[in-house]
Write a protein that binds this DNA or RNA. Structure first.
Length: 477
RNA sequence: GGCGGCGUAGCCAAGUGGUAAGGCAGUGGACUGCAAAUCCACCAUGCAUCGGUUCAAAUCCGAUCGCCGCCUCCA
């Protein structure tokens, strides 16, 4: 499998450091508000990566942090902690805010069919690790303390800028960060910040009461749960600088080993061509979208574009994805919900179709997780599969098509296609009775009654469809 | 200003040298009492514009125009 590595700016063949284990770390959310579509895109993208790696047989350890301290609202040292600020607004304890929005985050991610990370470490739960890391960096000469603050000396790490392509000189010129608290160089960033009396989230340290800088937690927790070198580190494009650049400086500065082998970055969600972000205030919460659309619509919408391309948000786009999902669900539903028990082989035509689909699907996925292409292969399977079943519908063909659909669409792309069939046994029986009645009415050409039945059923979300041969079928839309 | 990316049909979107995937919408046909679903057919002689390299360019090179991201917290 090839993955685009932001570090080398090349698609490279992925091989883990020690087969079959793969250590993946993805920057998680800062939990001071509900998740928006941008979070959805990011975590759906990495979810598919994780699912595919596991499908290929790798033993993946997936770590995704929860930032509940240290993330400031403003530039380097002047801002307020985001969690504390939100706590003030909602009149809650900071840790209540963190807990509230952590739960909200997982609710939304669960709805999107995103598999939970193996570990979701909290920054506030790993202060000792972060303090230890700072100590090492001070000993190494990469960090220095000034009056309760500890700064990373960017000039001490020659590799600074290798991920973002930034030159140190340009950084100085562009730096809007004020020189304060005795910082030796405007490029330097804080590892530990002194906390005043008004600060609630604070810990004791060798440098007095304070709290960690934002970049530090990811270095500390990634190394704690995976080791010195990660196979893959993911995150949003907007975190390349300064966050990921600083993670490299911290981790490699501490132990001299390569921190990350593959850096993967997903592109942004835009609204009217502009980035969806909290600072612009143009974000749409996932919860609001879910009011109107099945979360699987959102997942499909995200997967229809490549993770490294921007995704422009629009209702038209969601409507289009909704129609597409309907087609996926209809096809899967046609194949039967329970795997058919059959020893018979599918027809040769079906077997060839399935093999071609599998090959095409994997070629797309192996090329830097090309989900639009992978989806295209599934839609081609649907068209051809429907054609086969229209001509000759046999249980072995249906079973074989169901298996490939579940493997590709459900297990790898994470699309739950059971949507239309969440009915209980009782409603299934009732639908059967209505269908039978409809058949009799049609037989007697009582179309006024059949049309009325269809309209009423439509109104409550059911579809009446008449099959060749006089039989009818009532299903949930 | 520095660094990076993008511009493909009405909309969305793959495709990095060999002659334009797929989805949505639309059109015609089959099927139907009418529908829905499904199938078949059609739907970009052209990939922002102009030039160049090549037997061959959406793909490589140059220029131009337009858009976006990062450089400050953001997935």
């Amino acid at each position: 499998m090839k993955l685009y590595n932001s570090l080398t700016r090349l698609k490279e063949e992925f091989e883990p450091l020690s087969e079959p284990n793969v250590g993946v770390y993805v920057c998680g959310p800062t939990v001071y508000g509900h998740s928006h579509l941008g979070h959805g895109k990011s975590y759906v993208s990495f979810d598919v990566l994780i699912r595919y790696l596991r499908h290929l047989g790798y033993n993946v350890r997936y770590i995704q942090n929860i930032t509940d301290v240290g993330h400031l609202t403003d530039d380097a040292d002047a801002g307020e902690d985001k969690i504390e600020k939100q706590a003030r607004l909602e009149k809650l304890e900071p840790m209540q805010i963190a807990e509230k929005y952590t739960r909200s985050y997982f609710d939304d991610m669960d709805a999107l069919g995103i598999l939970r990370p193996d570990v979701s470490p909290r920054a506030s739960g790993h202060i000792p690790e972060q303090i230890e890391l700072i100590k090492v960096l001070i000993e190494n000469g990469h960090a220095y303390e000034v009056d309760g603050y500890v700064y990373y000396s960017v000039a001490s790490f020659p590799g600074y800028g290798k991920l973002s392509g930034r030159k140190l000189d340009d950084l100085v010129a562009g730096a809007r960060v004020s020189i304060d608290q005795g910082k030796r160089d405007p490029k330097d960033f804080a590892l530990w910040k002194k906390a005043g009396d008004d600060h609630i989230l604070k810990w004791n340290s060798p440098w007095g009461w304070g709290y960690p800088g934002w970049h530090l937690e990811c270095s500390a927790m990634a190394m704690r749960y995976i080791g010195d070198t990660l196979d893959i580190h993911g995150g949003g494009l907007d975190n390349i600088f300064p966050h990921h650049e600083s993670e490299i400086a911290q981790s490699e500065g501490a132990n001299g080993k390569q921190f990350v082998r593959f850096w993967l970055h997903n592109n942004m969600v835009t609204v009217d061509g502009q980035k969806m972000g909290k600072s612009l205030g143009n974000f749409t919460f996932l919860k609001d979208i879910f009011e109107k659309y099945n979360p699987m619509v959102v997942r499909l919408y995200i997967l229809r574009s490549h993770y490294r391309s921007p995704l422009d948000f629009s209702d038209m786009g969601l409507d289009s994805a909704k129609s597409g999902l309907g087609r996926l669900i209809a096809f899967r539903s046609r194949l039967g919900q329970k795997p058919l028990e059959t020893d018979q082989e599918p027809s040769k035509e079906t077997a060839i179709l399935i093999e071609n689909t599998r090959t095409a699907f994997h070629e797309f996925m192996n090329d830097d997780i090309n989900t639009p292409g992978a989806l295209a292969s599934i839609f081609e399977l649907i068209r051809a599969g429907n054609g086969i079943l229209d001509r000759d519908d046999t249980p072995p063909d249906r079973a074989a098509l169901a298996i490939i659909m579940d493997e590709l669409a459900r297990d790898i792309l994470g699309l739950d296609l059971t949507g239309g069939n969440s009915s209980t046994e009782e409603t299934a029986v009732l639908c059967g009775i209505l269908a039978q009645t409809r058949g009799i009415l049609r037989e007697n050409r009582m179309f006024e009654a059949t049309d009325l039945m269809r309209d009423k059923l439509e109104a409550i979300g059911y579809t009446a469809k008449d099959l060749p041969g006089g039989k009818s079928e009532i299903t949930r839309k």
